[in-house]
Design a protein around this nucleic acid. Sequence first.
DNA 1: CTAATAAAGGACAATTTTGTCCTGTTTATA
DNA 2: TATAAACAGGACAAAATTGTCCTTTATTAG
Lengths: 144, 144
Amino acid sequence: MFSKACEYGIRAAVYIALQSLDGRRVSVTEIAEEIDSPIAFTAKILQQLTRNNIVHSVKGPTGGFEIEREDMDKVNLSMIVKAIDGDKIYVGCGLGLKECNADKPCPLHDKFVDIRSNLRTMLKSTSLYELATGLEVGLTYLKR
Amino acid sequence: MFSKACEYGIRAAVYIALQSLDGRRVSVTEIAEEIDSPIAFTAKILQQLTRNNIVHSVKGPTGGFEIEREDMDKVNLSMIVKAIDGDKIYVGCGLGLKECNADKPCPLHDKFVDIRSNLRTMLKSTSLYELATGLEVGLTYLKR
DNA sequence: CTAATAAAGGACAATTTTGTCCTGTTTATA
DNA sequence: TATAAACAGGACAAAATTGTCCTTTATTAG
């Protein structure tokens, strides 16, 4: 469904959000450790999230990544996925046809529209805050 | 969503089914041309479909690929996808965690279960016959 | 029986994705 | 101001996926 990069990106963002709720800034090293991801690769992905204003980065000692409390409400999964994987989960034919639309649909076109619509709704309606608080309360997990 | 291999596989299977409705056996060359796919790669994928009894192959002159009329009803998209991509669209955590289940769910676990359930239902309930006849009637397309 | 046709399959090549390493830049603090 | 911590970013490496080529095997028709 998502690329590895995107999976790491989401996990990283959720972890950063969780720590930001405690007022803690976190380093790439800590993030990679806590979400069990390759550190240098994770650093690249965090660059993308930073450039897309999904997370905020601070250089130098005491620096690291953080997310403002209000941004946790604004940022949803759809934004993270778009920042990393682009809009390819939304766009393009499910069977790989170059031209496929309501006028000249592939055999799966309509069924794909439905599935994608579900996915889109889910991604757009899930905020980082919701995910982080689930973790905080101990209802969900990020590792293993 | 699907791998390229799987996209080609589905398109090939639908094309074979369509031609089989007319009693025509088709060669890899013709298939690749008609579904606009790389020929040698398509041949490999057809081998997988053949080994999984999704399509039937006949060697030698007048040979080629075909699908029995009754098999078009039995074969659904889920079977094709499984034959090529395995069950990775159904199995495994959406965020890539090694252990993720109802007991120790990742933050997206429940929402993924829903999306996947939709997808699974769609794939299982869509038969090759349904797809082929849509093409036949001119409602859908396989090329471009 | 021979020649031609078509799938099967092994080996290899190109591309994309995933992942690493190293150098540079920013910045807090002693 | 020097040092060290931490992100930014370029270049490179490994692995997976996609794609090609060529030889072998089966089968039909002349």
